[in-house]
Design a protein around this nucleic acid. Structure first.
Lengths: 219, 219
DNA sequence: GTCTATATGCGGATAGAC
DNA sequence: GTCTATCCGCATATAGAC
C-alpha cells in the first residue's frame, strides 16, 4: 500500500511539526509515529525539507485558494466598489476556521502548523511556500485599501500584519487555551466571529494623524 | 575578562536565537559568533537550555516588570475604578516598543526573540519562563474585565490572545517589513500607536450577542 | 515498495592540560 | 577561565538485499 504509506507519513509529520516545530522533529520521530520504515520518507519525498513542503502544500494551498475565491466573489458582488471591511476579514479568516470545524473534537493540528509557518520557519525556507500567501496578502491589501481610502497604503499593511498575527497566534495557541481555560471554551465558529469583530473594529479605526495636525488637539 | 565572555555569549545567543530559533541554533554557531571557546557556554551557563533561559531573563524580565509598574500606576490613578482601555493597552505594549526605540537603527533582535518565545518554543520549555508572563497576563485580564464589564471573562481572554498575537507577530516580522516594504517604513513609536489604535478599537468592540438576543436584531 | 545496515557528519557535553 | 581533544549519541541520507 504505497499511497497509504505516503498518507501516513504526511499525517504524522503534520502532527509532529505542529506540536514541536520543524527543526525539533526528527525523521525517526515521524517514521515511528507513522509506523513506517525510516527510509520511506526519503523514498517518497526525497528529504525532510521536501516533506515539510509537501505537508504545507496539502494544507495551505486549499486555504489560500479558498481565500482568493471568496475575495473574487465579494469583489464581483461589489461591482468594482469597495467591499465591506467585515466581509473582507471574514473571507480571509473563515477558510482556516472552517477546517478547524471539520476536525470536530480533535485538535486542529493543520492549523497549528499553519500558524507556526507564519511565526516560526526560517526566512529562506519560508520564502519557498509563502509565495502563494504573498499573492493572497497583496490581493487583500488592494481590497482593504479600496474599502479604507482614508488610510495610507503603509497603514493598511501594518494593520494587516496585526490581523495576521492575531490569526496565527490563535491557531497556534487557541486549542491549548480551550483545553486548559474553563470559562474560555468556545466553538471554532464563535472564535472566528470574535476575531472578525475584533479585527473589523481595529481595521476600521480612525487614521493616524500625520505630523501636520490642524492645530488644536496637541499641547 | 570573564564577564565580557558571558556578555558576548548572551549577545550572540540573542541574535541567533532571534534569527533562526532555538532548536536550529547550535552551540558552535553561538561560540563562533561570539568568538569564544566552545566550552565556555557550558562553563558559564551549564547547558544550552540554561543559556536560553538566561537570555530570556535578561530581556523579558525587565519588560514584564515594567508592564506591572505601569499597571500599578494606572490603577492607582484610577482609584479603584475602571482604567481607560487604550491606556491599558499602551501600558502593556509600550515596554516592548521602548526597547525597540532604544536600539536605534539596529534591528531589535531582543524583541524578535521575545516575539518568537510567544510563538515558537515548545510547551514544556515555554512553561519555565512564561510564569512571569502569566502573572502579567492575569493582572491585565482583571483590569480589562473591569474596564469592559459588558464582556464575559472568556471573551476578554480571547481578545487578549488576539492582542498578544498582533504584538508577537509585529515583533517577529515588523523589522523585515520595514526593511523591504518602502511605503511601510515607520518609527517604532508610530508602530506602537498604530497597534494601540487597532487593539483599542478591537478590544472595545461590542460584546458578542449570546444565544438569547432581546429580539429585534436578528433575522 | 519496503526493509536492514551503515555511511557520514553534527549535535551537546565533558575531561583534563594549561 | 580558557583551551584542545574527544566522547557519544542522534541527525539525515543512502546502498543494497529482499
Amino acid at each position: 500500500m504505497a499511497t497509504d504509506t505516503k498518507q501516513r507519513i504526511l499525517d504524522a509529520a503534520e502532527r509532529l511539526f505542529a506540536d514541536h516545530g520543524f527543526p525539533a522533529t526528527s525523521m525517526r520521530d515521524i517514521t515511528n509515529e507513522a509506523d513506517v520504515n525510516l527510509a520511506a520518507v526519503n523514498y517518497h519525498f526525497g528529504s525532510k525539507e521536501a516533506l515539510l513542503i509537501a505537508v504545507i502544500e496539502r494544507t495551505a494551498a486549499p486555504i489560500n485558494r479558498d481565500r482568493l475565491e471568496r475575495l473574487d466573489a465579494l469583489e464581483r458582488d461589489a461591482g468594482g466598489g469597495p467591499v465591506d471591511v467585515e466581509a473582507l476579514i471574514r473571507a480571509f479568516l473563515a477558510p482556516m476556521f472552517d477546517r478547524w470545524s471539520l476536525w470536530g473534537k480533535s485538535e486542529p493540528k493543520i492549523l497549528k502548523l499553519v500558524g507556526r509557518i507564519h511565526a516560526e520557519v526560517d526566512q529562506e525556507l519560508r520564502a519557498k511556500f509563502i509565495r502563494q500567501f504573498d499573492t493572497v496578502f497583496a490581493r487583500y491589501a488592494v481590497a482593504f485599501q479600496r474599502s479604507l481610502p482614508e488610510l495610507q497604503a503603509g497603514d493598511v499593511h501594518w494593520r494587516m500584519l496585526f490581523l495576521v498575527g492575531s490569526m496565527a497566534h490563535t491557531m497556534t495557541w487557541g486549542a491549548s487555551i480551550i483545553a486548559t481555560d474553563r470559562g474560555a471554551r468556545r466553538e471554532p465558529g464563535e472564535i472566528l466571529e470574535a476575531l472578525v469583530r475584533f479585527a473589523a473594529d481595529g481595521m476600521s479605526a480612525p487614521a493616524p494623524q500625520g505630523v501636520a495636525v490642524p492645530a488644536g488637539g496637541m499641547r
